[in-house]
Nucleic acid binder design. Structure first.
Lengths: 156, 156
DNA sequence: AAAGTTATTTAGAAATATTCTAAATATGAT
DNA sequence: ATCATATTTAGAATATTTCTAAATAACTTT
């Protein structure tokens, strides 16, 4: 997870790596996705950037996010409410899904990733090649306006 | 996982348990979902039942599946292609997702469920109550027309 | 078994969401 | 600076989902 804001220069390099032209629209869209704590839909991205960038059309946002996802620059995130969302955070990580607020909250934990990976290593998948995996933990936030945190339990 | 076909009587009992009226539409829709090896969308369910039940409207299928899901009779399944699907199989289980065919394949493994559950037990979730979880394993089928199977790896 | 009460279904309209089109434009290469 | 080509645009076309009010059917009570 990148802690400082990503620069346009860095985005340009990412795009070049995939042979994608660095249009101003793509820079804005990618930057917005990086800054978003949410996992927004195409529509949400469009709404956020629209005031500052009224000339970027909705079709472009849809197409751009699709292109990004196809190139592995962003990740598509399935949501139980049926909407397709996007995540600039492409490393293997997990999600908490709040069935009330429909929020998708990142949850990173290397121990868990390793645990699952090791389990999968003991299995033989016939006719299927694994690319990655993610755990979706469903539940509900208690206070909808506060954030969710995860820590280790006190040992008894 | 139920091995024999579910009877209308059993569906009626399930519905009654949730205070839902046992309409013929609901019986057909629930039965269809049980029989489906896929994880169909509302549209797919409608298409399947339409020939034999031309009077069941699409709006009813949408509404019925929604009602079922809200009552825990079926489960909503998020899909990376952005479509909302349904699963009559409500016990905790995992999914393989083929990014090519968009198929969602059930994958049951108690060891894995326990592994994850035990991990979660060691964590303290602040402001979040866990209901359930599922692992989504992304990848690709090799032969699109054959099924996927999972077994233990040979020990070396 | 009939009547009453209420949830459910229906068809079609309305609202949303997504994709497509062909022309215009901007990017990166030469 | 020019060229070839990918990308964007607005709006139309599709597709998906929800809504509406009237009609119907299920369960309850008698």
């Amino acid at each position: 997870m990148l802690e400082r804001p990503i620069t346009y220069q860095e985005i340009k390099e990412k795009l070049a790596l995939h042979g994608l032209k660095a249009t101003s629209q793509r820079l804005v869209i990618y930057e917005t996705l990086c800054k978003s704590p949410q996992h927004p839909t195409a529509e949400m991205v469009f709404d956020w950037i629209h005031t500052a960038n009224p000339s970027i059309s909705l079709a472009t946002v849809y197409k751009t996010l699709d292109t990004f996802a196809d190139n592995g620059l962003v990740r598509r995130v399935a949501s139980e409410d049926g909407s397709l969302r996007f995540d600039a955070h492409v490393d293997s990580h997990n999600h908490l899904y709040c069935t009330n607020t429909k929020e998708i909250i990142d949850f990173e934990d290397d121990t868990l990733q390793n645990l699952i990976q090791e389990f999968l290593n003991t299995k033989q998948f016939e006719n299927f090649v694994i690319k990655d995996f993610q755990l979706q933990i469903n539940g509900q936030k208690i206070d909808h306006y506060k954030t969710v945190k995860v820590h280790d339990k006190e040992k008894k």
